[in-house]
Design a protein around this nucleic acid. Structure first.
Length: 866
DNA sequence: CGGATCGAC
DNA sequence: CTATGTCGATCCG
């Protein structure tokens, strides 16, 4: 489905219109010329809400570009030279790792959906057709393209361009079936081939080529399908003829081996032979064979690219479509020649926006991309400029990785304006229901629910919330989604929320290991201990929100589904707070008094004694406690005990020095001694018995968050620190557990008065705090979010140290003013043995963590233990 | 973590 | 009238 890229392929023009339009239209006899097309599109578009939004987006991009240009002006020749050196060092390494030994093929069906429809209704053959609906087209045939009708264009505009256009509705089942037929063929050449959607696939035919060398001719012989109509037979011959012509004279490499296809063995009079064709043993021949077989089987044509890696193969398949193929021979020279004048927009991964940004720098072709590599390394993120470098060198992945586990699942729907809350909530529930079904098909549960809304002005918003126990059922998802929706409705009140799209997504799936673990411990814990309300708090959410959720679960029924709500209340998930919630939060729209009200709830919760037995999530022993504090105290004790074990193991793995029995070295290597001197009794983790509840709650919180960072969890999947972390996050949400006096340690705190329980700074304007780790000023409204920032900074520092392993002592000399420049010092780490696979994701703020190490560590540590 | 954006099909 | 649906990646705060 490469058509749609072309649809937006304005290789350089700035106008919105041209982005949506077409400029590589080959003006044909029956077609329209570029100007006419653009005029028609403009007339149909002008003044629409859609167009206004496009203009807005365009301006945003322009602003990004302006920002970039300003940054560029500040770059000194010195910096540029230095960058050049660093980048070229990397170039040398990349060049050394270049792997030309694989043969990768990219197969791309021509105008797939349209072709299938035409095949099934031959009367459409000579007519311009498109597949899709009046509101959106998926693809069009080549006839229609002459009128400017492209994929990703709304049907009603296409009709204006081409009044004779036939629009065929989508029929996915049909396409899937055809796709499956094609895949059966592909699997014979590479059982591990990688399908990309219904109409594309990558194959690694390296092994096949080797084996094929020993194959007898008969094994490479294929017969024409005689079952088809005469017309189809004609096509076969045409196609075969095209093979021999090459069809792509632009490439000197193409079809250099003239293995005969048909009629080249006149001496063989066998009827069998007359109806058959033998393919050679070269890569080109294999691909011709594949395409031949696809056409014989499905009556559809495909284009293909052959190259030493996926990136190149993909671009090759574009060269001679439709119904052609192109090969880049595995030589460095050939690759660079291919790239020399290739517009960057042809490169997969470079879209509209990137194209425009690079254009602003005078970069249009891949060779220009290479020439400007030093500049790019200063202006773009590490991930981006590395990608640019790979592209300009023609490097890509040389093996096909199975795509890993799914990361998210979602469903969304577009509709005509919807503006009543009733409709919106019931639609939301419907989406949750659909999503829940899909999730259950794959047995997935996720912790993050994201709501997506597009208002009638085409502005898109997403709102996410992460909950502690993963969700998968309609009710569970809806419980979260409806909250997010409610917040959005509130935010525009008293105006109605006018939307044209709603979507729900679930992400943050548990790995299998985690799933088992989760079931054993957390869920049982939550069940046994659910009398204790705070344990169900969501990280990142305030108590207020929590209680609000609960209350809504009970009141929601009044909106649209009383039965369901009733079932929920009486059923498997009774809320202990329901009676409280019901009365306090009947009016969801009055967010004004809502804070007031929730305070009462909080107080109530805090003061009410809890004489319950619960299972400690850390030690798994039953504990009875008469107060929240007592409970917390126990958990703190447990945590500081287990944490030591946990941390020790990790430390063993990553830190060569065995006997470091505290975890400071993990992120503050140089200052161990100093820390111990300064705060000897604060090293709570080293000695469980010495820890007081207050200290450990804060310190363990930081540490558990650090050590349970995802990258470590992979190695320690069942680490108790996971649980500990969750708990700590929960604890953090209890206002009283956030040390109030820590504000004294921020340098520029501008808040006016102490807000007693919620820790939120008074007033709307953000307070500016200086992060002790990255030393940057942070605008923040709450301590919680500031804490989060500090955590993130620390995490980055830690990950980096773990990655770099031994050579910690990073001197200040390595740190540059700009973080982009700082990133360059990591050249070595970028070399990846399997070239082309994605690099480790540590993209930002290396310099930040280094700064912290050298100058602010002391400060940081003090702050933690306050 | 949450939100926005990009890019692909 | 009438401008998609789903997913992964990345960047920024």
């Amino acid at each position: 489905m490469d058509d749609r890229k072309k649809a937006c392929n304005s290789s350089c023009n700035d106008g919105v219109l041209l982005r949506m339009g077409l400029n590589d239209n080959k003006a044909g006899m029956q077609g329209l010329d570029k100007e006419k097309i653009n005029k028609i599109i403009m007339e149909a578009t002008k003044g629409s809400r859609f167009y206004e939004n496009e203009l807005k987006k365009d301006q945003q991009v322009n602003q990004r570009i302006e920002k970039m240009m300003k940054l560029k002006e500040k770059i000194t020749t010195q910096q540029l030279l230095k960058a050049q050196l660093q980048v070229d060092k990397l170039v040398v390494e990349l060049e050394q790792s270049r792997n030309l030994s694989n043969t990768i093929v990219h197969i791309d069906m021509d105008a797939f959906y349209a072709a299938v429809e035409i095949r099934d209704k031959p009367e459409l053959k000579e007519k311009p057709i498109a597949v899709g609906s009046m509101s959106m087209l998926s693809t069009s045939n080549y006839h229609a393209r002459r009128f400017g009708v492209r994929a990703a264009m709304p049907g009603f505009i296409a009709k204006k361009l081409c009044p004779h256009l036939t629009i065929v509705p989508l029929n996915f089942r049909k396409y899937s079936k055809v796709s499956k037929e094609v895949r059966e063929i592909l699997a014979e050449y590479d059982p591990n081939f990688m399908p990309m959607g219904l109409d594309e696939a990558y194959l690694n035919i390296t092994e096949h080529l080797e084996e094929r060398l020993n194959w007898p001719e008969n094994r490479r012989r294929f017969f024409f399908n005689t079952e088809g109509t005469t017309e189809n037979n004609k096509d076969d011959i045409n196609m075969s003829a095209k093979f021999n012509e090459g069809g792509c004279s632009s490439s000197p490499i193409l079809f250099e081996d003239n293995t005969p296809l048909i009629n080249d063995h006149p001496e063989q009079r066998d009827k069998l032979v007359e109806n058959s064709v033998v393919f050679g043993t070269s890569a080109e021949e294999v691909v011709k064979e594949i395409r031949f077989r696809i056409e014989q089987k499905t009556q559809l044509t495909a284009s293909a690219g052959i190259a030493p890696n996926t990136l190149l193969a993909k671009m090759c398949s574009d060269c001679n479509k439709p119904n052609g193929q192109y090969r880049i021979v595995p030589e460095r020279r050939a690759i660079l020649d291919f790239l020399k004048d290739l517009p960057i927009r042809k490169v997969p991964g470079i879209g509209k926006v990137t194209e425009k940004m690079l254009k602003a720098l005078g970069i249009v072709t891949c060779s220009e991309l290479y020439q400007q590599r030093a500049l790019l390394s200063l202006l773009f993120s590490e991930a981006s400029w590395h990608n640019f470098l790979d592209i300009s060198l023609g490097l890509g992945s040389t093996h096909l990785e199975k795509d890993g586990e799914r990361k998210s699942m979602s469903t969304e729907r577009t509709f005509s304006e919807m503006n009543t809350t009733e409709d919106q909530y019931s639609l939301c529930r419907e989406l949750c229901r659909d999503l829940a079904q899909d999730l259950q098909k794959e047995g997935l549960k996720g912790k993050t629910v994201t709501l997506k809304l597009k208002n009638v002005n085409f502005e898109v918003k997403t709102r996410a919330s992460t909950v502690l126990s993963s969700v998968s059922t309609e009710e569970e998802i809806f419980a979260v989604a409806k909250d997010l929706l409610g917040t959005e409705i509130d935010s525009v009140a008293p105006h109605p929320l006018r939307i044209r799209l709603m979507g729900v997504r679930v992400s943050g799936f548990l790995s299998e290991e985690e799933r088992k673990y989760q079931q054993k411990s957390i869920t049982s814990f939550l069940k046994s201990g659910k009398e204790i309300g705070f344990l169900r708090l969501q990280p990142g959410k305030s108590n207020q929100e929590y209680f609000r959720n609960k209350s809504e679960a009970s009141t929601m029924g009044s909106f649209f589904d009383k039965k369901r709500a009733a079932r929920q209340l009486n059923g498997e998930n009774p809320s202990p707070n329901k009676s409280v919630g019901k009365q306090l939060f009947h009016d969801r729209k009055s967010s004004a008094n809502f804070v007031e009200e929730t305070k009462k709830v909080t107080d109530l919760q805090d003061s009410s004694d809890v004489h319950k037995i619960f299972t400690c999530p850390v030690c798994f022993e039953e504990q009875s406690s008469d107060s929240l504090e007592g409970l917390n105290r126990h958990i703190d004790m447990c945590l500081s005990g287990t944490l030591v074990k946990d941390t020790m193991e990790i430390t063993k793995n990553y830190d060569s020095r065995e006997n470091t029995c505290n975890f400071f070295p993990l992120f503050k290597n140089e200052n161990v001694d100093e820390c111990q001197k300064n705060k000897p009794d604060q090293l709570a983790g080293t000695d469980p018995s010495a820890s007081t509840s207050k200290n450990s709650s804060n310190s363990t919180e930081k540490f558990t968050q650090i050590i349970s960072d995802k990258s470590h969890r992979e190695r320690q999947p069942n680490s108790l620190s996971d649980i500990a972390r969750n708990l700590c996050m929960k604890q953090r949400l209890l206002p009283k557990r956030i040390p109030r006096d820590c504000e004294d340690h921020f340098e520029k705190t501008e808040h006016t008065e102490e807000n007693s329980s919620s820790c939120f700074f008074e007033g709307k304007e953000d307070s500016v705090l200086v992060c002790p780790v990255c030393n940057s000023e942070q605008k923040t409204r709450s301590l919680v979010s500031f804490n989060r920032h500090v955590d993130i900074c620390l995490n980055k520092g830690l990950i980096q140290e773990l990655t770099e392993k031994k050579d910690f002592p990073t001197k200040a000399s390595n740190m540059e003013n700009s973080n982009r420049v700082g990133a360059l010092s990591r050249g070595q780490q970028c070399t990846n043995p399997s070239q082309g696979t994605k690099r480790s994701g540590l993209t930002t703020s290396q310099s930040a963590s280094k700064k912290a190490k050298s100058s602010h560590s002391k400060h940081t540590i003090e702050m933690f233990f306050k």
